[in-house]
Design a protein around this nucleic acid. Sequence first.
DNA 1: ATAATACCATACGTTACAGTATCTATGTAG
DNA 2: CTACATAGATACTGTAACGTATGGTATTAT
Lengths: 218, 218
Amino acid sequence: MPAPPTTGTPEPPRRTRRGDERDAQIRAHATALFLERGYNGVSIDDILREVGGSKTNVYSFYGGKDGLFLAVMEATIKELVQPMLQVRVTGLPLEMGLLTFAETLLSVLLQQRHLAFQRLVIAEALRHPQIGSSWYANGPAATHAILERFLREQQALGRVRPQIDPAATAVLFHDMVIFDLLNRAMMAIDGGPTQADIAATIRRAVEITTMAIGTPAQ
Amino acid sequence: MPAPPTTGTPEPPRRTRRGDERDAQIRAHATALFLERGYNGVSIDDILREVGGSKTNVYSFYGGKDGLFLAVMEATIKELVQPMLQVRVTGLPLEMGLLTFAETLLSVLLQQRHLAFQRLVIAEALRHPQIGSSWYANGPAATHAILERFLREQQALGRVRPQIDPAATAVLFHDMVIFDLLNRAMMAIDGGPTQADIAATIRRAVEITTMAIGTPAQ
DNA sequence: ATAATACCATACGTTACAGTATCTATGTAG
DNA sequence: CTACATAGATACTGTAACGTATGGTATTAT
């Protein structure tokens, strides 16, 4: 009788309650440190020094530093995306919808946690392409879809000209709102954009978009 | 008689012709390797292995790995920005000007060299903020200014509505054209955007912008 | 020509860190 | 209560890389 097939990665041992608690601490600390100092700026010993526990935890469950990194990055994607999935624009007038969308988006993307995350994704995109794909699919692409649905709805109500492509317009509006502010925040130009910068950018993006796609009557 | 004031950084030795040639090789190779593998992925020995020469060169002229890195990054900024500074849109009709601008911009930003550069700037922005500032000032900000000048000119000719703010519009158009394409290229989504994606994005951005800011007669 | 100095090759000291091994302590199942 | 698996502490190994030192070779200036 043949032995059961050997799995490529050996099964991690099942955990005790203590193990679960340690693991949660390790993940939380690892996330904070990676975001703060980057992948190479953090050693496994750094993580464990403050948390306690031992390398056994990391190596038997994640296989190594890379495994731990991937796990915490995936979790951070889910966490960051959360507020965007809860934005409610259905039923609002065109301008109000765009405004609400833009404000929610920027409140997520300009927070320090996201800026650090973005840096990390980009820095490691070559070594870990799956993180980049996962982020694009769950972040920007998901956000595009939400706005596209709203624009389509507005179009059905006759508030957006029929010849407009909702998908393409969603991307353009999204980019107008985000890019320069994000760029400046990432490069820490003059300490990043102010609340006034943010408000002005949103106002202008909404203005230019409604002028271009809204039906004249509106 | 007092000794001459000791300068903070000791003067680098003056170079011989051989030294100049070596230095050029070292910079070229260092640039290629940093762009390909990131700061931490390259050791000084890696650079010198293929070029020849010795560590003396790096340490006596740049003070260390960081100094060399800063020097090659500054040079790369200048090199990348070059084509954008030469774009000529003055005198063109509004649509043609926007089109030309967008095409030139994307031809620079979507090339592999720039993608790698962008990754590097972002990854190292925390440790070397001056690179980020320098890039923003010489890249995006300079590009904004070129487009702003064009829009102002169009406004003077009555082709852009008087109430439009050229500076703000320049930023928005710039962002619309770039962001999603750059994002997808950086994350290597489906191997990056195709020529068709690029053409479609440019067309839509020009369309939405002229609709929003152009004078109706036009 | 020769003295001074820039450059080369290479070895060395040091530090940092990934990953492994080992032994002890602590839970957990039967 | 006993046996066994999980978790902890820590020592150890191997490797990589920064930055320095040294002794020899080419280049330049006088």
